[in-house]
Amino acid sequence: MKLTVDRLHVTLDHNPILRDVSLEAREGDIVGLVGPNGSGKSTLLRAVYRSLRPADGAVRVGEDNVWELSPRAAARRTAAVLQDAGGNTTGLTVTEIVALGRVPHHGLLGRDGAEDREAVSDAIDRCGVRPFADRDYASLSGGERQRVLLARALAQSPQLLVLDELTNHLDIRARFELLDLIRATGITTLAVLHDLDLAARLCDHLVVLHDGAVAAAGPVLEVLTPDLLADVFGVRAGTERHADGVIRITYAAQPLPNGGESPEHNHARLAETAER
């Protein structure tokens, strides 16, 4: 389903975190949310998965504003995989973790039915976690855990996936496998990614957040220009599509002396360094 974020303003403890943020993900698109630390990426996600109420603006999945739905109704549309530090899942098996995806589909009296078991089993298969389905989640490696959490999200039968740094701490092979998995689901996805190369590889579109506002949005090659990379990320780099169709970013050896100022400034400095 289509995701529309419309003129979103979010404040935390009276500090504005997001200012007038709008973005759109068409049905089936994977949209990457990138930006330096503290630019407001996770805050934007929280407003989307209904954890932090925006001061103004709307988040629509399909036609409905998620903030006008009940928490459970919203969670039947949007599934999130987060870096949650507060949890303590010791003692839950992989299957039990995946089954948590069915929580929003039941009230207090609901019992697990055939539909639930099917959704859980299907998610387990799709994410390839069947071999350790009965093991304690706490005993898994980082890559295995992320696949289990993705399976939990799929078991939710969502129309929108929200991913926060899904591939952190994973080795390169596990990253690629996970990205392929997400592509294969065909579900509209909004993903916060730290690694720009990975973002370029996975996403159809990118949205760049800088200081709580959208600095750029659009197809990867149009967004990740040398100017923007210098401006927002404070690095000298170029982006190009290689012969194999993969978009790669090439970074200069040294970062800019003082990242994130006006473009003219950076251009001047670039020219300066080039002369030397």
Partner: peptide, 23 residues
């Protein structure tokens, strides 16, 4: 015991539980 399912969600952490539709 009826809250069992939601208590399980709480084990995943507050943010994850919220994303699972638990207030």
């Amino acid at each position: 015991s009826l809250f069992g399912r939601r208590l399980n969600a709480l084990l995943a952490g507050d943010e994850s539980a919220t994303a699972l539709g638990v207030d």
